[in-house]
Design a protein around this nucleic acid. Sequence first.
RNA 1: GCUCGAGUGGCGGAAUUGGUAGACGCGCUGGAUUCAAAAUCCAGUUCUUUCGGGAGUGUGGGUUCGAUUCCCACCUCGAGUACCA
Length: 1031
Amino acid sequence: MPAYSKALTRNVFFQKNFKMSKYHFNEIEAKWQKYWAENQTFKAASPDPSKGGENLKPKYYVLDMFPYPSGAGLHVGHPLGYIASDVYARFKRHQGFNVLHPMGYDSFGLPAEQYAIQTGQHPAETTKVNIEGGVDNRGEEIQGYRKQLDKIGFSFDWSREVRTSNPEYYKWTQWIFIQLFESWYCKHANKAFHISELIDVFESEGNDNVEAICDDNVEVFTAQQWRDFSETKKQEILLKYRLTYLAETEVNWCPQLGTVLANDEIVNGVSERGGYPVVRKKMKQWSMRITAYAQRLLDGLDTIDWPQPLKDSQTNWIGRSKGATVKFRIQNSEFRIPVFTTRPDTIFGVSFMVLAPEHELVSQITTEEQKEAVEKYVEATAKRSERERMADVKTITGVFTGAYAEHPFSGEAIPIWIGDYVLAGYGTGAVMSVPCGDQRDYEFAKHFNLPIPNIFKGADISEEAYSDKENTIITNSDFLNDLNYAEATEKIIAALEEKGVGEGKINYRLRDAVFSRQRYWGEPFPIYYKDGMPHAIPTECLPLRLPEVEKYLPTEEGEPPLGRADVWAWDTEKSTVVSNDLIDNKTVFPLELNTMPGWAGSSWYFFRFMEAAKRDEVFASKEGLDYWQNVDLYIGGSEHATGHLLYSRFWVKFMHDRGLVPVEEPFKKLINQGMILGESAFVYKAIPTLLSPTKGIQDLSFLKTQIFASACFVKNEQFCETCNEQHKLAADFINNELEQLNLVDEVPYIIEFRFFPIHVDIELVNLSNHLNVEKFKKWRPEYNNAQFISEYGGIVKVIREVEKMSKSKYNVVNPDDICNQYGADTLRMYEMFLGPLEQAKPWSTAGISGVHGFLKKLWKLYHSGENENFYVSEEAASKEALKTLHKTIKKVAEDIENFSFNTSVSSFMIAVNELTAQKCNSRKVLEPFIILISPYAPHIAEELWAKLGHSYSISKAPFPKFEEKFLVESTKEYPISFNGKMRFTLELPLDFSKDEIESAVMAHEKTAHYLEGRTPKKVIIVPGKIVNIVG
RNA sequence: GCUCGAGUGGCGGAAUUGGUAGACGCGCUGGAUUCAAAAUCCAGUUCUUUCGGGAGUGUGGGUUCGAUUCCCACCUCGAGUACCA
């Protein structure tokens, strides 16, 4: 084609495409996003204390679990929940609510710190770039979360943004920490109080009558003794009562990395990063006394509307079990070993005891003869990680300590063993073993040849333990004989209490939460140390800012990174942070070196959003807290089930106890959005082997030749039987290289191939699964000379598999690209259209065209004028159009309330198809209709709304009112079934009686046909629904 | 192992209290328009069939005039949790 012709074509093409009436989503979306930002359209109104808060509409608080701003940016899976909550927030605005719909960032955390260690860049800087965009120090351009979010058209109130790593925010995280530090939990009142109230009690009557949740080793003292205690001693005692306290805790310590590792950071007993050994070690750590709230956290679940699986996992995590503690005396010793059991009724079946290897009494009760074996065992188990121990349930190990306990009722001697099936962290770290009733005890007894006395009437315990509770009758058990489980349990608990050797007890699996991290990028504790005791810095001095350090690694002495700070001491006189050189332990003291964990900042952020104005003076103002209360709708992933969602509930209950907030639960309704999965692409890579009579089998994977085959040639990791030609071609590639290397034998040999699927970037694959061979060669240097076994036309097909979306799997779809190509409205609608919100579903870019086409059709519906110009008529709407409109209003309103967003997208499509077919152009229909769509596709809705002549945002328009009268029908298309099978339909007036219907149906020619001469036994008629003829 | 959830066309999924199974969309097939392509529009699309019909919502049974929906047993997949005494 000559050059001028090409130019001409392009010009014509250009004009055609830029007709005024076309749906230019990029322009429209940019325009309205700018409008919303400039007009602060979605700013939530705050209560005005001078007007008593009555100036406001009813409130509605919609919140998303805030993101950690990673450098990788968003993929299409991330916004799913945000879109759903945005649709809901916009819908609630249309319904006349004052909606709070904020967004922020959980910006403290490990990835930023790891990146800082690698690059030396301050985590605050990388975090800022990740949020606001910019260029990182590798020269890579980063879009930034904010720009990515803005592009999708969310109705967030950005004036209330929070970032947990901002000092103005973590000031209040530290403040709440101090409140916890200065609180204790009264069992009697079942709530937390200020520590000063406890001190008052100590001063007037000592601690004998204090019922508190505290450490279990608290000594009893009188008021006089308390007053005589030194200041340090007093602090030591108070620490045992504080809701956040320092304690020796078993942790996974990695000496080479110089830090504590979480269980999931350890693989096979070595650190996931670097493969260094991990030992379990006791370390002094900050802990949160969340166990004080175990029962209330359980009870509260009944008051909130959360998915059942989520409630279940919290219930399991808290792990309430009812039973008894029994103290066993140790023979020839003063020691008593308490155990917890859920089956005190089986106490006469005890034939041995087992302690956790870490149990504190192990070293003290072990006899001389057993000492060596016990020590060896304890050391061996300490080397194994918690996870390793858990994973290896099959192997039964243990050692006899040589000591004996005494049965509290029979007085019999009970051998005491140690074994790692008993966990130090649960109950008392010791069990009374009843092998006839507990499978683990049974197996332990079998393995070590210990006796298995049977205390169950008629139970067969020759093969396994009898653990049934319901049908149990106790026998061989002294005064418990012939009782069932419930009776025996009641009787034995009474007997234990009477004898003073035990009591009924409710035990929780939930542990106090370790709150210290040996990390830099977290909130510093507002704590300094005086005589080894922690003291809080005055709250008016907050925030205690993170100090500068020259490296983000632990110190050579193994202290956390804050140990590298030179200016990290607290001057109590000047109330300020000063240089470490000035530490004199009189007025200047060292500050805490640990930082808080990730969940600190996220446990209260939902209250921060309630405050817009006085953020320096209060964590949230009383008016704000009273007006907004708690989150009405919270949307996020289920992975936070036992972390964030449990800790937040704990903090809120605590804050409620102390009168800081009016509510006891943070999130009234919660929805877990399902994951959007990626469609990974794999290409088959051939690994050659040589078979020769002289050398046998020889691996050829060292060769440089890289061969990839189209998926159709591969079956069961090999060339399929019919692919001789392809096999020969591949073998030739290998032979070429062998010849060049002079490795070719004289003897005949065969080259075989095995295929392995390897990930390829989905960018290199089109929608028909064809690999772009040229781009693939450039993708990796080692593929530059890749050879392909391709189909006709050079096609190399990949296979697809649904996997989690992640950078390492090269299957990430970026929402920015979708917005550029199809628009944010299409992205929003498509994500909602994919399927139910809670379900996991694969992303398929191919399917997006349907939704995009729908929006084009919608646009066309409003552009039915000449030259496809905008046109609506002021004439009355047709009956059909009104019916379509009102049926859609009804459906969409119900769908949104049920969070069934996918079905409302379908009903929009149906409505547009119907209105288009009806050639509807009436304002009476098209104006309310666009309001229905606006929560889903707000940009196109604003544009059409403006074209309809409105000068205010569509988000302020009231939701259309559903009117039943437009749906009333006079006839019904009755389905006529024979024996439950629908055969044909028959249109009949709705006011027909049963008899009239029956005679009409029986008179119909098709009825006779389907009856085939039989006489109907029965005719079921449900007026307005169905006719079923039986016979 | 335990707890929870889910099984419906080639694919994502719909069917709100038991009442026309497969809405809507993708894909596919055919057609219109076009020099051609894109875009758009129209028709068809669960399987099977001797074109009458027959079968059909993981499997087997049950309740019912009627079951994707309710009950029982089982199978498969997914998620969480894991020696919790």
